[in-house]
Design a protein around this nucleic acid. Structure first.
Lengths: 208, 208
DNA sequence: GGATTTTTATAGTGACCACTAAAGAACTTA
DNA sequence: TAAGTTCTTTAGTGGTCACTATAAAAATCC
């Protein structure tokens, strides 16, 4: 009776109801993929963890790669959200510093989910569908970054974006190799120093 | 009669002679692994390219992982040789600049062998033998770098090494994603700027 | 030439991979 | 209750993985 979802809430769907929750499944899948990597998580392990038999999984998600694509979208929406970092009016160097330092913290925070799910997926077996999905997300985020920087620094937006993208890949790789948060933060700090010279080559006020 | 190898040159080994050359096999394997990655190169593709049937391959090399380990050693000896970069008396910042810029060039030079074979292998399936071999090589190179920097900058050798290691991973990842040499070199340049501040925080002579 | 040694080729091994055909079970609609 | 719809279960599919048992072939040793 309240004004929740207007459609498909009262009226139940026709057939046998699904025995598992999609959101829970995506969450479990995200955890598995982030811990072990897309290729390492076999369908058997995946369906076991989800408490779902393969045919149900395929009925619901189509394929392992499509399921992964949903997981990637979900992850990209919830982690290092660019809308919270690329704030209007914020100096690019400050935004990039925030991004790199947040990444350093995020990538090392949970010892079982090190690095970035998207950036690590980008390096999977090269002509796999999962890699295409991950690249699409990574690319769109890089476009966002480049356009943000280009608002104030059009001449070096491309270079700065390349540098940030490369640094994020490096941070993710280092996190996966076991580098802890403190070390990653120092790496990010040095990276920001380089970026500061690129984005503000003159007129730095040395305050320390 | 000349003073070549003193042992096992005149006297031939007893059984049926090997029908392929080990060095050629390692070279072919290196090319395959570097192009497609360790996991992507199946044993069938590998033995086909080598012109060798599986039993011969296993007689000669033991396993795919052991073969890969030989390939890694060979690669590490021939690419970005640290002995040519960490020259005695050279300022660490100059050595690291040379390393990062050489890496940028090397990683993008051959479009079919992008990135670093070792660093990409480090990010394989986590408890695979191939990853252990790659990590061992990467670790020993990082120790070399850290000890070189520590000679003149003991207080920040660890941080600088972390930064260089992370940057190299980023460059390798970016190269594999298709970033060309010019762009990678600009990334390396910005990275060096950051490193310069870490290693020479005061007394920089600004010459441009 | 015959014995010994080593590598070769033939032809598979079982294990795992992502995925599915067929039929039963649980629900809504009429 | 019967029909229709959708999901779940059982039990597999063919394909690929790294790897190997067996025996023939090619060399040296005596």
């Amino acid at each position: 009776m309240t004004t929740k979802e207007l459609k498909q809430v009262e009226r139940k769907p026709r057939g046998r109801p699904r025995a598992f929750d999609t959101e829970t499944a995506l969450d479990t899948g995200q955890r598995l993929f982030h811990t072990s990597g897309y290729e390492s998580v076999g369908l058997a392990a995946l369906t076991d963890a989800l408490g779902v038999k393969p045919p149900s999984f395929y009925k619901a998600f189509g394929s392992k790669a499509e399921f992964f694509s949903l997981v990637l979208d979900r992850y990209a929406r919830s982690v290092l959200t660019l809308d919270d970092i690329l704030l209007p009016g914020r100096a690019p160097v400050d935004a990039m510093a925030a991004l790199l330092e947040s990444a350093a913290s995020t990538y090392a925070r949970d010892p079982h989910q090190r690095g970035c799910l998207v950036l690590e997926a980008v390096r999977g077996l090269q002509d796999d569908e999962s890699v295409l999905y991950a690249r699409k997300i990574a690319d769109s985020r890089r476009v966002q970054i480049r356009e943000f920087i280009a608002q104030t620094h059009p001449e070096c937006a491309a270079a700065a974006t390349d540098y940030v993208a490369s640094t994020l890949s490096g941070l993710s790789a280092s996190a996966r190799e076991g580098m802890n948060e403190a070390r990653l933060l120092r790496v990010a700090e040095v990276a920001v120093a380089g970026l500061r010279q690129l984005l503000q080559p003159e007129g730095r006020d040395v305050t320390d």
